Computed example of a mutant assay.
Amino acid sequence: MSSKTKAAPKGAVIVVGGSGGMSARYRAIVEERGLELRHFETRVPNGARRAVGRVAAVIVMVSMVSHALRDQAISLVDNGAPVVYLRSPSISALRSAVATLAPA
């Protein structure tokens, strides 16, 4: 394996709510920590539990999410991963929240 090959992600950060147009920026922030992004803007698709894998955290953008979507996303977690509530859906708020996660 070459030194330029990325290591496999060591978990996923589930972001619920927020803006679909910002997914690429959300992804860049999460990947800086060696994690993988799962962004659910309006619904959690069928089969998501199998696809998500290990969850490092669930981040809920409270001003842009329904209670039903929040509950669906939290139900994907069975390993005691933290659930972080952000009042602002901003990039800086997400960056701060991801920075508090334990190193991957």
Rank of each mutant, 00 (worst) to 15 (best):
M64W: 03
V83W: 05
A68S: 11
V77F: 03
N46A: 13
N46D: 11
V13L: 03
A97Q: 06
A24E: 10
V65I: 01
D78V: 02
R33F: 05
G53L: 10
V55R: 05
G11E: 10
L101T: 09
G53W: 07
G17W: 04
V60Q: 02
L101H: 01
S66V: 01
S63M: 09
A8F: 10
A24C: 01
V58P: 00
A12F: 06
P82T: 10
S88P: 08
L101R: 04
F40E: 07
G11F: 06
V55M: 11
G18I: 01
A48K: 01
Q72S: 13
G11H: 08
H39S: 08
A24S: 13
V16F: 00
A24I: 05
H39M: 08
R43A: 03
I59P: 04
V55C: 11
R95G: 11
H39K: 06
T5M: 15
V62Q: 04
V83M: 07
G21I: 05
T100Q: 05
A12D: 09
Y26Q: 03
L94F: 10
A7H: 13
S19R: 12
L69R: 00
A7T: 09
S96R: 15
A97C: 11
S88N: 14
L37E: 08
S88H: 12
M64I: 00
I14E: 02
S3R: 15
A73S: 08
G11A: 13
G21H: 07
R50A: 06
R25A: 13
F40N: 02
K6S: 14
G34I: 14
A97K: 04
H67D: 13
K10C: 13
L86G: 10
A51T: 11
H67L: 09
R43W: 03
V44R: 04
E32N: 07
G20V: 09
L76W: 01
S19C: 08
V15R: 04
A68M: 11
G18C: 08
R95C: 09
A57Y: 00
G17Y: 02
L35Y: 05
R54G: 03
I74S: 03
S92V: 13
S88R: 14
S88L: 05
A102T: 15
R38V: 02
G34K: 12
P45K: 10
G53V: 07
T5E: 15
A56L: 03
R87Q: 15
R87S: 15
S90P: 10
A12N: 10
A104F: 12
P89S: 14
R43D: 02
V44A: 01
V52I: 14
A57T: 11
N79E: 13
A68L: 11
G11W: 01
A93P: 12
R33A: 15
R87N: 14
Y26E: 03
N46Q: 10
K4A: 13
S63P: 04
E36W: 12
Y26L: 07
R27A: 09
A57F: 02
M61L: 15
E41A: 11
R38P: 00
P89V: 05
K4Y: 06
L86P: 08
Y26P: 09
S66A: 02
A57R: 05
L35T: 05
L94P: 03
R70V: 06
R43F: 03
S23A: 11
S19V: 03
P103G: 09
S3F: 15
R27V: 02
M1R: 15
